[in-house]
Amino acid sequence: MSRYCGDDDSKSILEAAAHWREAALLGSGSVLTSKHLWTSSALELLDKYFVRRPDLGDGKYLEKLKQQLAPVEDAAKQLVAEMMWLL
């Protein structure tokens, strides 16, 4: 992975990514909460309600995401928030 970002200092971004890797990816925890979010059950819910049921209609992304995830448990919604933070 390239760490060169021109004149921009990428140190804080790389530190945040390393923290996420340790806390969430390797530890199944989270950077936004003390809960364990990165679990197979939460990922399966996201696959079922978001990936396999795309909302191709009109509307803004966050509005459609909220509707798609309405039936899922809070931990899966928090996982989506963490995924968006990571992006």
Rank of each mutant, 00 (worst) to 15 (best):
Y4K: 07
Y4I: 07
C5K: 03
C5M: 06
G6V: 07
G6F: 07
D7H: 02
D7M: 00
S10R: 06
S10D: 08
K11I: 10
K11Y: 12
K11V: 12
S12K: 11
S12M: 07
I13D: 12
L14K: 12
L14Q: 14
L14C: 13
E15W: 01
A16Q: 10
A16P: 01
A17R: 04
A17V: 03
H19W: 02
H19F: 03
W20K: 05
W20M: 08
W20Y: 14
W20S: 07
R21C: 13
R21E: 15
E22D: 13
E22P: 00
A24N: 01
A24F: 01
L25R: 13
L26G: 03
G27K: 13
S28G: 02
S28Q: 10
S28T: 10
G29W: 03
S30C: 02
S30P: 01
V31L: 10
L32D: 06
L32K: 11
S34F: 07
S34N: 15
S34D: 15
K35T: 02
H36N: 14
H36K: 15
H36I: 07
L37F: 04
W38L: 15
W38C: 06
W38Q: 03
W38F: 15
S40V: 13
S41W: 00
A42S: 15
E44D: 11
E44F: 05
D47G: 11
K48Q: 13
Y49C: 06
V51Y: 11
V51F: 04
R52S: 10
R52C: 09
R52P: 00
R52G: 00
R53Q: 15
R53E: 12
R53K: 15
R53N: 12
P54E: 05
P54M: 06
D55F: 11
D55M: 11
D55A: 14
D55V: 09
D55P: 09
L56Y: 09
L56M: 10
L56W: 04
G57D: 07
G57W: 06
D58M: 09
G59M: 02
K60M: 09
E63N: 08
E63Y: 04
K64A: 02
K66A: 14
Q67M: 11
Q67C: 11
L69P: 00
L69V: 07
A70D: 11
A70K: 13
P71V: 12
P71S: 13
V72F: 07
E73C: 11
E73K: 15
E73V: 09
E73H: 14
E73N: 13
D74E: 15
A75T: 07
Q78P: 04
Q78A: 11
